[in-house]
């Protein structure tokens, strides 16, 4: 009888989850970079909306590279944090008219369009998958 090592150091499932989280981060970065210029027009005050978008995109790139290279718990946690922050922000400013808070401008935008919807879906699913990746990592035994 062949035995299966369910605690294989790097399972195919973990690789798949990692790839999908990296993909979600890539989509997050790409869309935020694309929308940054126009968002500066809409929200020029405080830290301009475009600057916030570029910061988000930069964080997503760094988290994506870190996760792709390392695949550690810390990398999953960082990826999940970046994706969750983007998802919460897009949902919050879609449904709640949040006023300007210090340097963060009011960014209420009660509409959906393609890039925004895609970003919300990608970051939401990506955050869930990052959590799953984290759980898979917890199940692994250190060698």
């Amino acid at each position: 009888m062949r035995s299966v090592d369910y605690r294989s150091p790097t399972s195919k499932l973990e690789l798949l989850v990692r790839a999908l989280v990296v993909l979600a981060l890539a989509v997050d970065a790409l869309i935020h970079f694309r929308l940054a210029g126009n968002f500066s027009l809409a929200v020029p005050g405080g830290i301009a909306g475009g600057t916030l978008f570029r910061l988000q995109a930069g964080a997503a790139i760094l988290a994506g590279i870190f996760l792709a290279v390392r695949g550690s718990r810390g990398a999953y946690a960082l990826a999940g944090l970046v994706l969750l922050s983007a998802f919460v922000a897009v949902m919050l400013y879609r449904y709640v008219d949040v006023p300007a808070i210090g340097p963060i401008p009011a960014m209420y935008e009660p509409i959906w369009y393609f890039e925004k919807s895609l970003s919300a879906v990608a970051t939401g699913l990506g955050a869930v998958l990052a959590g799953a990746g984290l759980l898979l990592q917890r199940g692994r035994k250190p060698q």
Partner: peptide, 17 residues
């Protein structure tokens, strides 16, 4: 991922994009 980042960075911030 780096390739995606480069593509996005090069063409992303102009308003027309």
């Amino acid at each position: 991922f780096l390739a995606v980042a480069l593509v996005a960075g090069c063409g992303g911030d102009a308003e027309e994009q």
